[in-house]
């Protein structure tokens, strides 16, 4: 069984470099195409900073209940993923998500969400790509309860310093 892990978001460290998106799409699709990424960097208007958005695999995930095809399933790893063969691309999971986390794959309109790189022995691709900034951290579920990760993803006051004062790698 794949190891369970969570990805903790520390939004105030995000500089908006979007390397996580490139890494995610490289890792999952073999192509550096941010539109295919399961993590998305949201730019807050105007000059409002950035926040990485990804599926929080909520305990009582609403997407599991509203999917007409029962295509949203909880994997052994605890991640909540879309079974592509069952998905009809209706986006119900995206519409009910408190973060709007599911991404819509450009080629077939089906949703995809973060699977915590279940098959990867090392750190998830996005976490590895964010090493310099440290806005993403891989943690074991015990280390940071899922709820804490989720609250952090939503309720953080993301911008406490002027944008541009810290650049990726600086």
């Amino acid at each position: 069984m794949a190891e369970r892990r969570e990805i903790r978001v520390i939004a105030e460290r995000c500089t908006g470099c979007r390397r996580c998106e490139i890494a995610c799409s490289m890792g999952h699709c073999g192509m550096p195409t941010p539109e295919r990424s399961r993590i998305r960097v949201l730019r807050l208007p105007p000059e409002g900073g950035h926040v990485p958005v990804l599926c929080q695999a909520c305990e009582d995930a609403p997407c599991l209940k509203v999917c007409p095809m029962n295509a949203r399933v909880r994997a052994e790893t605890g991640a909540v993923i879309t079974e592509a063969e069952a998905c009809i691309g209706c986006r119900a999971c995206l519409y009910i998500c408190p973060y709007g986390a599911p991404a819509v794959a450009p080629e077939d309109g089906k949703t995809v969400t973060c699977d915590r790189c279940a098959d990867l022995p090392g750190a998830p691709w996005c976490v590895a790509a964010c090493r310099d900034c440290g806005a993403l951290e891989a943690v074991r579920p015990g280390e940071a309860p899922r709820r804490a990760c989720r609250d952090a993803a939503a309720a953080l006051r993301p911008v406490l310093r002027p944008a541009g004062s810290r650049r990726c790698g600086s």
């Binding site: 939004a11 949201l42 807050l44 208007p45 105007p46 000059e47 409002g48 900073g49 926040v51 408190p98 973060y99 939503a154 309720a155 953080l156 006051r157 993301p158 911008v159 406490l160 310093r161 002027p162 944008a163």
Partner: peptide, 17 residues
């Protein structure tokens, strides 16, 4: 405001937008 020193949670800011 929406400036870099704003202190609203991002979900709230998106909502405002």
């Amino acid at each position: 405001g929406d400036g870099p020193h704003g202190t609203l949670a991002w979900t709230t800011r998106r909502l405002g937008e």
